[in-house]
Write a protein that binds this DNA or RNA. Sequence first.
DNA 1: TGTTTTTTATACTGTTTCGCATAATATGAA
DNA 2: TTCATATTATGCGAAACAGTATAAAAAACA
Lengths: 205, 205
Amino acid sequence: MVQKRQKASSTKLEAVAPKRRGRPRAYQPEVALGKALDLFRSEGFAATSLDDLSAATGMNRPSLYGAFGDKRELYIKSYQRYRADARAAMSDIFRDELPIRKRLERIYAVALDIYLSGDAGPRGCFTVMTAASEAVSDPDIRAMVLEGFSELDKAFAACFRLAKEKGELPETADPVILAQLASATIHTIAIRARARVPRKELEAI
Amino acid sequence: MVQKRQKASSTKLEAVAPKRRGRPRAYQPEVALGKALDLFRSEGFAATSLDDLSAATGMNRPSLYGAFGDKRELYIKSYQRYRADARAAMSDIFRDELPIRKRLERIYAVALDIYLSGDAGPRGCFTVMTAASEAVSDPDIRAMVLEGFSELDKAFAACFRLAKEKGELPETADPVILAQLASATIHTIAIRARARVPRKELEAI
DNA sequence: TGTTTTTTATACTGTTTCGCATAATATGAA
DNA sequence: TTCATATTATGCGAAACAGTATAAAAAACA
């Protein structure tokens, strides 16, 4: 629970005076979490030290613990943040009623933006990275990753189902199988991006 | 170069008396490298310590250094070994002249065997795991990973090209694009295997 | 002004890490 | 036997690591 500055029963909602008691925070939790996510995405869990995180967020270690818990908890919160961001970036695309082809194009374009961003080289898909590393030994993290996969599968399947209803796809097309293929394509792109396959080639796929 | 016991100009080739000078080795390099590979595959580079490697191989640290160099070199040699093993497992399939459908089935079956093996949970594809972790920051490793991807792409493309010549595929089919799709499928399977998606589901894909 | 509360800043602890130096050991050769 | 060589075994040392204890600082409140 990040406990969002509970305003003392004032009239207007949100963005009003914090009116907290002690010394004010020198950081913004949301911003700091974003920085932590950036680091984890480019280095991975094991290769990211608390000192690195401290430097990146501008918070010293005790503050990190106070705000997010230990390293593992911070990783989990970073991952949840990543998923929320990704969902936000995708949701409007899944909402718009475009023809399936156009829609897929836009989905892959957004995915490429996410995967290729980053100062220290492309960062790929955090879900895929986590699956490749922590998901094996940590059951909680594994559960989140599995959920991430199935969320993507389901979103794609919904797209294809809709397209089928609108007659854009033949009757024989199976939305679930098509969705898995579409997810697979997302995954290769994410992985190849990490190996710095140029954007041009990825777009071709 | 692992320098395979150079026999002193004897008659028979291989498997003859080593005739080395000093204290004999207490380990077999090939076996030890296999153990190191196993560990790296299940834990990843950063989470595997030299003590772990020492325990797994039965060699103490100085011997490890003497035989394989530092941790990074050992990782690279392990990866090369992995690729050699995978190539060996696949080569006979790519050699047999089966119909394309049968051939694909066998390829995916072998891939599943490789990805799901391991005592401490499924270990996935080492190329994919390396791409997700070390490939970003280490140019040499990145180059090897890229080579791994293109090797798989090319092998699949060759399959599809052959199938097209034999009339098993329509004229309109593009072997290169089909190969990328087939690789993508391999990659999702590898990733999902790490997240312990059950074999049944993977087979369905 | 002084107290309470919350956060920051510094520093400490015990462990783990990597790489290597040194000594002991086991073999072939002289 | 004795020497040269190649490996093993022990363990050192400096750095990095995760997590925490303690003190200083900054705000609201009384």
